Simulated scan of single mutants.
Amino acid sequence: MKKFLFTVFSVVLFLLVFVAVYRVWGARLNAKLVKVAEVKRGDLILRVKAPGYITSRRIFTVTAPIAGEIKGLNEKVVVGSTVKKNQVFCYIVPTAEEEKSLQEDLKFAEMNCELAEKDLEVAKKLYEMKAISYQEYRAKEISFLREKSNLEKLRAKLEPKPVYSPIDGVLVKAEVKNGQIVTAGKELFVVADLNSLVAVLNVFESDVNKVYTGVRGNILIDGEVKFSGEVENVSLIREETSPGSAPTYKVYVNIINRMDPSAMLRIGGTVVGELTYRVIRNVKVVPLEAVNYEPGSLSRTFVYVYKNGRARKRYVSVGETDGTFIEIKDGLKEEERVITSGSYFVKDGEWVKVEKE
């Protein structure tokens, strides 16, 4: 009887041990694959990232000096071409109907001027003979000068009026053609100074207080750093945005250095600015994806420490983040390893397997 009981006890004990070992090794064999990273010291470079465009501080609008018809348009002057100061774009002449009217007025003005000049000559002789007073002579002189001025104005109206560039720069807009009738003051050309380029960034309201005059950063084109710059002005006026869009403010960045010798900036070209507003040096950091938040609480953060093949949950105190790494203020020691990829799917105490890089 005793022998039988001993045998039963041995079998049960063996089965319990087998089940326990099976569960342990089974759990280890079915361990979730994770990636880990060491807790280390490093620098956090905090940046504000915002889209924007290139413009110039010196943009001049060239308007029609008089009403009339466009003539002699310079075919070499096209949008995107460089222009020189005082380079003629085109001329404006009176329309055919206006020219006919001016020619008629000119004939009368020439006749009136000729008569006034003869009257002045007669008045001069009479004055020299003391036949008339100085006031009478002066009246004839003023009458002649008035007619002469009127004649000169009419002749000037018949002369082609040149339209020219006010500066050295690049032509960014030209909406004219030969034969086009324009009114005085109509916009004809827009010229920009390429030596005064500035990046205008649309910074979210939540980030704008981090940016101030003197903050430096990089200007990216197609995702690559092409230029460096410095903030010269932060607008105090919120930009109008479409319903549901986050409000933004304009930040003006002076272009300082060309990082890529082959890079070109074009008026209106889209860019992305990365402005470095703070650098935190020599702090403990881990990849941002290693940090998890307790459900229902954004203030309680934790990580899973990889230790002896298991994931061990540990609460930590965090600081700033640069979007890739996050500062660990308390809760971890240097060289400890934390689970990064896969941390969201593991549980405290669960067996895990580190995925080979």
Rank of each mutant, 00 (worst) to 15 (best):
K2M: 06
K2G: 09
K2P: 00
F6I: 10
V8I: 14
L13Y: 00
V17Q: 01
F18P: 02
V19W: 11
A20W: 11
A20S: 13
G26E: 03
G26P: 00
R28E: 14
L29M: 11
A31I: 00
L33F: 15
L33A: 15
E38K: 15
R47K: 15
G52F: 07
Y53G: 02
T61G: 04
G72A: 14
G72M: 12
E75A: 14
E75W: 07
G80V: 05
T82S: 10
F89H: 08
P94L: 08
E98V: 12
E98Q: 10
E98A: 13
E99M: 11
Q103W: 09
Q103S: 09
A109M: 06
M111W: 05
N112E: 12
L115F: 03
L115K: 00
E117I: 04
D119L: 06
D119M: 03
D119N: 14
L120C: 11
V122L: 10
K125A: 12
K130S: 06
K130H: 06
Y137V: 12
A139C: 05
A139N: 13
L145Q: 11
R146M: 13
R146W: 04
E152Q: 09
K153A: 10
K153S: 11
L154T: 03
R155L: 15
K157V: 03
L158G: 01
L158M: 14
K161W: 08
P162S: 02
P162M: 06
D168Q: 06
L171G: 05
L171Q: 07
N178E: 11
N178D: 14
Q180G: 01
Q180S: 03
I181M: 06
T183H: 07
G185T: 02
S196A: 13
L201H: 02
N209H: 11
V211K: 01
V211T: 00
T213A: 13
T213H: 12
V215A: 11
R216F: 07
G217R: 02
I221Q: 07
D222Q: 14
V225K: 14
V225Q: 12
G229D: 04
E230Q: 08
N233C: 09
P243R: 10
P243H: 08
A246M: 06
P247M: 04
P247Y: 05
T248N: 07
Y249R: 02
V251W: 00
N257G: 07
M259N: 05
G269C: 08
G273H: 03
L275K: 07
R278F: 11
R278Y: 10
N282C: 00
V286E: 03
E289Q: 10
A290E: 08
V291Y: 05
N292R: 15
L298F: 08
R300M: 12
T301Q: 12
Y304N: 04
V316G: 07
V318T: 15
G323M: 02
T324P: 09
F325Y: 13
K329L: 13
L332V: 05
E334N: 10
E336T: 04
R337L: 14
R337T: 15
T340W: 03
Y344D: 12
V352M: 06
K353L: 11
V354I: 00
